[in-house]
Each structure stands twice: as C-alpha cells, then as structure tokens.
Write a protein that binds this DNA or RNA. Structure first.
Lengths: 304, 304
DNA sequence: TTGAAAAGTGAAACTTTTTTACATATAATA
DNA sequence: TATTATATGTAAAAAAGTTTCACTTTTCAA
C-alpha cells in the first residue's frame, strides 16, 4: 500500500511526466521530417489514428506498418518516451483531446460570410499557436535562455516577411538590459553578422528555413562561432540544422496551402515566450542591476 | 498497412469498446462490496488514484497492494476488460476526465519553470485572440472591406510598437491588387497623410489609441476626408472616435498589467482577417483582373 | 568517384510483463 | 464433518517489449 505522501509524490512526478509527454506529441509533429523513412510510416499511422494505434501491441503496430518491432521500440525512445507503453498512453490522451474537435478545420471558401472568414482565420491562428506551443521543449528553452542571458549582444536577423518578426523581437528585447540590434537591410545584416563573435548571440527567423540570403547570414555567423537561435517552420531545414537551438512555428499540415499566413504569429508568440522567460530569469538573479518584471511589463503599456 | 475501411471498422469497434469500458469503471464502483477482500484492495487503489495506477505495471500494482499478479489479472478480466493493458487505459481515461479543468489564467511568476512560462504566454495569447474574435462584428467588417476594395489607395499608419503591425499589414496587402503604402518614419507618415484624399483609405494601428503623433495623423486624414479604419485596444479612445470603422484588439481585463504584450498579435490577426476577406471578395467579383485566392496564398508560402 | 564513418534496419536473443495451470487454502453448506 | 465452491499464490507458459549484432544504406571527405 501507499502512504499518503508517497502517492502525492507520485502524482507530482506523473504531472511532470504528463507535461513532457504532451509536448512530445508535438515533438513527433515537429521532428517529422527529420525522421527516417520507416519511422515516418509509424509516426504517420500514429498521428492519423492515435486512438487505434493506442490500443495496438508493438507487434500489431509492427505488422500494420511493416516496420520491425525493434525499430518501433527505438523510435518511441527517441521521441523521449520511457517505453512503448508510455507512448501508447500518450496517443490515447491525444485521441481523447482531439476527439471533441468536431468542427475540424474547414478551408476558407469564397461563399463564406465575412464573419465566417474572420472566425476561420482566428481558429487557424489559434490552432497554429497550440501546435507551436506543444512543440516547445523545456530543454531547448533552457538552452536558449541561458545563451541569451549571458550573451554580450543579441542581434535579430530576418528578411522579407520574417523581418517583421525580427523587428518585433528587437522591440521587445529593447526593454531588457540585453544589448540588442536589428538591421532591416540584407547587406547590412550580412556585414554585421561578420562582426559578431563567440560571445554574441543571434536570433534568426525564417519561415522556410531555406532562404538563400538568410543561410548566407547563418554561415557567416557559424564561421565566427556565434550562437544561433533559429525560429523556423521546418525542423529539417538547413537553417534549423545550422542553428545551436531551434524553435518551430507549426501549422497543421492539413492546411498546408496557407501555412505561411499563420507562421508569423507563431513566430511572434515564440519571441514573446523567450522575452518573458528572459525577463523573469534575469530579474530573479541579479535584482538590483535590472528592472523588476513588473516595471518592464508596465512599460509595455505605455507603448504607443 | 491498413486500408481505409479497416481503420473505419476498427474505429467503430473501439468506440463500442470504449463505451463498455467506461461503464465498467462504474461497474467497479457498483460491484465494489461484492468483491473479495484482496480485490477490494486493488479496486480501492485504482479508484482513488487512477492516474497513478494507470502507469503501473501489473507487478508494481501487485507489490503496492500486496496482491499477487495472478489475482489482479483475473480481477480485471472479471471486470470485463480484455487484459490488464485495457484496464490501465480505462484508468487513464478516467484520470483525464475527472481532472477538473483548473486552467484559468494564472499570473506569471518568477518561480515558474521555463515551459510553464511559455505555456502561460501562449495561453494568454490565445485568450486574447478569442476575445478579439468575439468582438468583431459583421457590420463593421462589411464596411471595412467595402471601403478597402473601392479605395484608390490604402496606406498603413503605426508608430513605435504598432509600426510592426502596420508593416505586416502592408506586406500582406502588397500581394493583392490594392495600391498600398507604408512609411516607417513619423514625419513622412504625416506628410503622406496630407496628400491623401476622399477616395483613399487609411488603416491606423495604435494600442492605446491616444498616442499624440498618431492622433495628429488621424486629424490630418480627417481634414482631407480620408476613410479611416482603426485598430486599437480601447473603444473609447480618441483614435476610435476619429475613425470611420474601428476594430478592437482585446485582452482579458484581469491581466491588465501585461495587456500590451498580447495586443500586437491580436492586431495582426485582425489584419489577417481583413486580408483574407478582401482577397476572397475581390476575387469573387472581378476574376480576370486579379489573381485567384489560392495563387495568392500559394505565394505566401514562398515567403522567406 | 571512392572509401571510411555514421546512421538505419531487421532477425534473433534476451528481459520483462502478463496470463494460465495447478495446488492449496478458506468459507459455505448439507 | 465431509463436500463443494470460491479465492489465492506459486510457478510455468505465453506474450510483449527491448537490446544486441550483423548487414545495408547514406553521408561526407579525400
């Protein structure tokens, strides 16, 4: 039998585990294109039919996908589950939580009324945010914040549509004690990249993660040993590969046609999170050198 | 691999099974005092801590209760579960459904873990979007779209933090056939405002709606009879008063201290909606002059 | 291009978990 | 008290899941 406190402890432990597990479902989505050929088969079936797969034994899943049990076992471990059983549990949770979403995500239609168009747009946006949130891992966040706090300077890079996100990041972090920079022009971004060094940190934003100019900047930064934090929509993209830490702004794959629309907002939300984490972590360490959280947030209100 | 119909069948089968399983949780409760001495120990622990027990192996449950694995195995069969695994699944479901949605909207705290900070940030953001969406009225949307479609030109105005939203709006609407403009600098914004006339349309973005420079621009526009569409957080603000149509980017009042943080994303979502509505309405009217929606959205994907 | 190193994979050995068979104990009943 | 039905644990069997190892494919540098 358990004593009361033992159970309480286990509950706490489980809660932690559950949080991790949940975000790891996002991880399957997020790392999807980094998976190998066979692993994709497994991930596909699991994501498409979480309810069905959650009730399968590893052998059944093996013959359903044509992938060996060994590979499946290794796959779930790489997805950060302790074992196959924990994986199926997570799928079961997912099946429950996704189920009540009867409305799904209808495509926008020319016949829609204006408020319908607005509603759908907002729903897509919210859905992207949820997916993005789930894909964030504590580990990556910790690494990013650590780098940011200790960096001599933080420069934001982003071209085209992503320059908006970069500009926003710059604006936000201006309010911290960090030494931040942003340059709208590509050539100047590139030149500035060449001037950064090991103690500096760069935040690069790119939806596709394969824009040529953006990659030039990343190369330049890597050459100089600058820490790169990337925000992109594809974990397998060259930018994600080149980065020290990368975050994914996700959209539901079903709506692939319009994903670019919603990635900006997800990018901003990631930046918001990084900003809040940085502010809270800085203020809790060196209180007197830096403004307190509230003051910082208070300032935000006086923005135009 | 599964065929489509096989999966459908399995889904149906599962649904049936789940229904039975659920009522069988009730069965444990119902038949509780018909259970034997040892079985009661098991049932007790399972009902009291479904979440904890759902993650135990049969051996762990055995040593936790002091009942042999054999007895437990037989017990779950008598409760109509096919096997131990199905039993733990049912417990997991129970744990989820019984857990009340405590969520609400807690303040950010210095002691929060990084993923907690991120989760809270995303939740606030989503909440703001929901509030903003609800506040949109069909009537105002219709007026705005009508003005936009028939305008000779559309200029975006925004200073400070709101310049980011203005820039984003400009970027988005560039892809339409509308004649759009944006100038980052205040003085130039003001000068350009003086050059616009009755047939033009202006979209002004300001969180507070009372920034002095922004209001100067609004005055100038009003003087020339330019149609003003405002995006602000306060319906009573001078900007909202000065505008022909105004949209509100809302945040939950409870979290007044941090509202500035989330208004940008709501502003962007409003612009997204206006963009989608404009594109869909334009394309459904004059098909040959304008690119089809899909092409436009497709272009969005190739953004950097 | 080529060859070495790295990554991916399945068969099979191995471990753990769950179920069943069997022996024994306990309680109920005639 | 003998008989029978029910309960339970031990241990063997079966099933499920994990790891090892040999082989294949891919990647990357020369």
């Amino acid at each position: 039998m358990f004593t009361k406190s033992e159970i309480t402890q286990q509950k706490a432990a489980r809660k932690g585990a559950a949080t991790i597990a949940r975000s790891t479902i996002g991880k399957i989505r997020g790392t999807y294109d980094q998976l190998s050929r066979t692993e994709k088969k497994v991930a596909q079936l699991a994501l498409d039919n979480p309810g069905v797969v959650s009730e399968m034994t590893i052998k059944e899943l093996s013959s359903a996908t044509g992938v060996s049990t060994a590979t499946i076992s290794r796959f779930v471990k790489r997805m950060d589950y302790a074992n196959y059983r924990e994986f199926t549990m997570a799928l079961a949770h997912m099946a429950i939580e996704d189920a009540p979403q009867v409305s799904s995500f209808p495509e926008l239609d020319e016949g829609d009324s204006l408020s319908t168009i607005a509603n759908k747009t907002f729903r897509y946006t919210i859905h992207s945010l949820e997916a993005t949130n789930e894909a964030l891992s504590e580990h990556e966040l910790a690494r990013a914040v650590l780098k940011l706090i200790h960096a001599k300077s933080v420069t934001f890079f982003g071209l085209g549509g992503s320059s908006i996100a970069a500009l926003d990041g710059y604006h936000k972090f201006l309010r911290t004690s960090l030494n931040v920079a942003f340059y709208p022009d590509y050539d100047i971004q590139l030149m500035q990249a060449a001037k950064l060094g090991q103690d500096d940190c760069a935040i690069i934003i790119s939806h596709s993660g394969r824009n040529h100019e953006t990659l030039n900047i990343a190369d330049e930064l890597n050459k100089n040993g600058v820490t790169i934090i990337a925000i992109t929509s594809y974990s397998g993209s060259p930018l994600a590969q080149a980065a020290d830490v990368s975050f994914l702004s996700l959209t539901d794959e079903v709506n692939y046609r319009s994903e670019g629309m919603y990635s900006l907002i997800s990018q901003l939300a990631i930046l918001d999170s990084l900003f809040m984490m940085t502010v809270l972590r800085i203020s809790s360490r060196t209180d007197q050198t830096l403004t307190k959280v509230r003051d910082v947030i208070e300032q935000t209100r006086h923005e135009r």
